[in-house]
Nucleic acid binder design. Structure first.
Lengths: 211, 211, 211, 211
DNA sequence: CATGAATGAGTCTTCATTCAT
DNA sequence: GATGAATGAAGACTCATTCAT
């Protein structure tokens, strides 16, 4: 059902085994080039070179350069969202403090375990298609966090979604600054601690005690 | 101390009024093009057209395109830093709550009064030269906030600079998400309130009561 | 007499029914793509897609893309020539007027019954191989018309071939303009009438009365 | 007032003298390449090479390759239409015979004085933009011929425009066949004579004697 | 035989920069 | 100083053809 003229959709699904392999190689190469050369020099020629395939192969699977980048971003975002959704299910019914501790840990781990890759992908997410993808992932995560907050054993919030948004913004926003080297090394090290402290303090302030 | 081959330095100082005017026109035009066409289509031809000067004129004042973009970013960041420094001086000796209220207000106002422009400039700040500039501004603001925190009448912090960094990261990070439309309209409206609440709660948690 | 490296010759003769069927499908698909996408986008991939065979299959029957296009054109031209030759045999010994009435009718019917197809094929006939094919068909038709004119019951012409050429040029030339939409709808409708009138008047002018 | 996003409009008008020179060189080179290599190989690289300018120069004046081709065609068609309009004014009030003699001469001269060029331009006129241009020229010429026919001293026609269309189609259609080498050399030589004869005979047949 | 993934030369187009006027 | 025409390297994308499966 796909591939009907949406410019950012992949062009075709692999029917032979080597197709899937080529796609993987392309994704890997894209990230490598992005890391090594930056978004501006991350062009089809370099990606193909790095992937050791011809430029033509890119266009077997993607209608244009942007759709390849979007696909790479999509994969990453999916993975991050999945990890967080998973965690949100596991942490249900804890106190606000345990929830925030786990959430901050999970998000920072997901985003900072391969910081170079995350950083490279920000370059994509700013482009035309990336913003939409980011929003979709955002929504998934927000819903997961809002659901999680609802189950908090000690506190209750009037507007779970708003609160979730604030918390996610603060965490994701800080992470971005870390990835862009806009914080000192020390803060990078201690960010987990402070974010846990801050979000927990915030929730206690804004929430009402459950009976 | 003149411009000896630093590629991002402006080429000459505006010794004549005419020069200063041209530079202003170029800056304004650059922002307009950035807004209207995006970073990718923001090229010298379009800037010159919009500014109603010839492309050659750009090279009278800047050794290359990037140095023009850097200069535009520089101006913006300078202005933001200055506003915040100014405020930090005015708020000295207040309570943590009044300080954070004023600070959050000031930063959000500075960054969100012309959101389109701020957003456009993010595109520049990601490029090679922009990161360095952003860091410099960051340092100025951090010092101002750290000094301000030191004067807080009610609380004392062991590491003012770290705390300042955390607070700035959280505020700036959230703002970026607003500018990238990654938050709902409602959160955009209520962001001030929540950031004030959160940062104040955080400071109260981490600080020690002054005697 | 097999295919020894002539680049526009079909590669092998359809000895099996399956082959003939595939060739038919390819011809049909080629015309469809030509109509829908134009000569520039009429490439092997699209033809294969439309024909629901693989690109590889095209090369089973034709040594290259141009030879497929040439074959398609050839078929069309053969069919047209055959129709006209047939008619020329049937009309022998009539008066100039009845001859021209029949001839104009026949040619217009042959070329305009599926105008879209005829139009599409013009795109091919302009290419390197098509011109030669067109000439061959032209010669066949000319000979048929010249022979026919010779049998006219009322008039005699000094140079039947020249006269035939003039008449064919005028008819075919007008048809082409119709197919390229360079005439109004009304003229398209009345073309038969005017061509009959004009060619008959011309022949009466240039011919000598038979005794 | 021009140049507002119409993809086939020239990009800018020359303000310096050498611009006009470059445009002329480009037109000339385009026709040369068209003649020597055919429409398929008539690409920007070859045109620029032949014109001894850089490819970039093409894009100073035309937004894309097609608009250059269209401009070249336009010039040619304008010139042809002008010549015919001029003649139509000069021939007014003659007999049908003198009118047709002059008209056939004029059109054949205009189209066949530089047959290679005319032939080359047919390749363009089949493309997207060319058809529209051809129609416009067609209309101009038709109006001129219809007006001319109205002034014929000896005959009167019920529908001047239809008659003009028929005549133009027949003449233009034959010329095309000459240019595509679909007629023998002898017919090419005698075409003028036969066309004059045929069109005059046709007009005498279809017209009514003026009193 | 049929398939369709892979190839890579060839096109169009953009844009920072230069330099003659 | 100012102008804008010219440059040409670089990038995105296409498509005829091949060949391993």
């Amino acid at each position: 059902m796909p591939n009907i003229k949406h410019p950012l959709m992949p062009r075709k699904s692999p029917v032979q085994a080597r197709s899937a392999a080529t796609i993987d190689v392309l994704h890997e190469a894209t990230i490598q080039v992005l890391l090594k050369e930056g978004i501006v020099r991350c062009n089809t020629t370099r990606i193909a070179e790095r992937a050791e395939v011809s430029v033509g192969s890119i266009y077997q699977y993607y209608p244009n350069r942007d759709s390849l980048l979007a696909a790479v971003l999509q994969r990453h975002l999916d993975s991050v969202a999945q990890q967080i959704e998973q965690l949100c299910l596991e942490c249900k019914y804890g106190t606000v403090e345990t929830i925030m501790n786990a959430l901050v840990d999970q998000i920072l781990t997901a985003k900072l375990s391969d910081p170079e890759q995350s950083k490279a992908l920000y370059a994509i997410s700013g482009e035309r298609g990336g913003i939409e993808l980011s929003k979709q992932m955002n929504d998934r995560i927000l819903k997961a966090i809002a659901s999680l907050l609802e189950t908090a054993s000690d506190l209750h919030f009037d507007e779970n979604l708003i609160v979730a948004e604030i918390i996610l913004s603060v965490i994701m926003g800080s992470i971005r600054r870390v990835l862009e080297n806009q914080v000192t090394h020390q803060v990078e090290q201690e960010l987990r601690y402070h974010l846990k402290l801050m979000t927990t303090a915030y929730l206690r302030q804004i929430g009402k005690v459950k009976v």
